[in-house]
């Protein structure tokens, strides 16, 4: 805890103390980013850029650090989120919402064809039909868009960008849509366990 207080104090200080703390933290963040994103082939320049962006966010939110964790763990969590956001942003830069919804995007389409239809049981087909109906009648247009985009492979964060809203709001739309659909099935006498059993090929 003392060490944590030191970080905040030093980052809040002036002059050399602050500069030194910032450069130490930068080294820690760069090391963490390089390690965690090694499999994504990120280089030093990427890690440095992310550390820089993360440092700004960290310095701007020092007041919100409550000392529940070590300071460096808290800072690293911010840096990792910054990095993942940037990677998502780059990956989806040229992809529109319409493309993922209508499956026009080749980079995301995993070659998924409707192979299921031929082999699906009657129970499963009935379940799909019922779900189509619940989507149509029970979800708002925004919820439908979010669900379509998610199933098309776009992360919540990028959907939020396209819809001009934030990640929390899109997460909430997805969350509420899932619960709503679950309730709709329950109201028509289909429990979650039954859904899982039909999907698994039983029942």
């Amino acid at each position: 805890m003392v060490a944590s207080m030191n970080w905040v104090e030093r980052l809040n200080a002036e002059g050399e103390t602050r500069e030194e703390a910032i450069s130490q933290l930068r080294v820690i963040l760069v090391r963490g980013i390089l390690k965690s994103f090694a499999s994504r082939g990120v280089d030093n320049a990427f890690a440095e850029d992310i550390a820089q962006d993360a440092l700004l966010r960290i310095l701007n939110s020092l007041d919100s650090f409550e000392g529940r964790s070590r300071f460096t763990t808290w800072a690293m969590a911010i840096a990792v989120r910054t990095a993942v956001s940037e990677l998502r942003r780059r990956h989806f830069r040229d992809v529109s919402l319409e493309q993922v919804i209508h499956g026009e995007n080749n980079t995301l389409d995993l070659g998924e064809t409707d192979v299921r239809s031929a082999e699906d049981s009657i129970d499963r087909q009935a379940l799909y039909d019922q779900l189509r109906e619940h989507i149509e009648t029970d979800l708002t247009e925004k919820q439908k868009t979010v669900i379509q985009a998610l199933l098309g492979g776009m992360p919540v964060e990028n959907i939020a960008d396209r819809m001009g809203t934030n990640r929390n709001a899109v997460y909430k739309m997805m969350h509420d849509a899932r619960l709503k659909l679950k309730q709709s099935f329950e109201s028509s006498g289909v429990s979650p366990e039954e859904i899982q059993s039909i999907l698994a090929g039983g029942a």
Binding site: E112, D114, V115, R116, S117, D120, R124, L127, Y128, L131, R132, I135, I147, Q148, L151, H175, R178, L179, L181, K182, F185, P192, E193, I195, Q196, L199
Partner: peptide, 17 residues
Amino acid sequence: TFSNDKLHRLLEMVAEA
């Protein structure tokens, strides 16, 4: 429109919600 593959994945998400 939703393909059956997508409906399948959505049903898993719904059942686990």
